[in-house]
């Protein structure tokens, strides 16, 4: 094992269940990729003022066609909450991926986590599986919010995908301008 291999290898999750395969993520500096396949919308169109007011940061949201949510950026997992995951990118960009609106009251039911706090992830690695039927049964919208939670540290955070377009998970959708 080379001296630097410890920085390259992704640690195996100890307790988390094995996830599906990673998706190929567009590689570009300061770009965030879609965490799930589906229809991209502007953050301001998310049906919740916490997100649409961009209080948690700028970014976008995706109305999901699929149930697996992938890392939008390469970095370290800082928070896992069942329905949400926070990742601090290797380049200092902090992102929050939040599945659905008011899904906190599901107390984790309907969500399977594949990562835990401290894990190193690459953009496109699976993080959470949601069960859309459970979210619908709880009466919540299931849109997946992608927010740059340290937006004030950057010049701008821009949507680079066409609003209302359908994208595959791993497609670059948001760009951070320094």
């Amino acid at each position: 094992m080379g001296l630097f291999d410890m920085f390259k290898k992704k640690p195996e999750p100890a307790a988390a269940p094995a996830g599906p395969a990673s998706v190929k993520a567009d590689a570009a500096a300061d770009a965030l990729v879609a965490p799930v396949s589906g229809r991209v919308v502007k953050m301001t169109d998310v049906p919740d003022p916490v997100f649409s007011g961009e209080v948690l940061g700028k970014g976008c949201a995706v109305w999901p066609d699929d149930e697996t949510v992938y890392a939008p950026i390469s970095g370290t997992v800082t928070v896992t909450m069942g329905h949400a995951v926070g990742i601090t990118g290797d380049d200092g960009i902090e992102v929050l991926v939040h599945i659905g609106v008011d899904t906190v009251d599901m107390n984790g039911k309907g969500f399977t986590g594949y990562v835990k706090q401290g894990d190193k992830v690459k953009a496109g690695d699976p993080c959470i599986k949601m069960t859309k039927a459970d979210i619908a049964a709880a009466g919540h919208p299931d849109c997946v919010v992608l927010a740059v939670s340290n937006t004030p540290e950057f010049a701008d955070v821009q949507l680079i995908a066409d609003p209302e377009s359908t994208v595959a998970a791993g497609t670059a959708v948001v760009k951070v301008v320094r």
Partner: peptide, 9 residues
């Protein structure tokens, strides 16, 4: 620090 506060759990 939004992520930090979430991380308090």
């Amino acid at each position: 620090d939004l992520i930090g506060m979430l991380g308090l759990g």
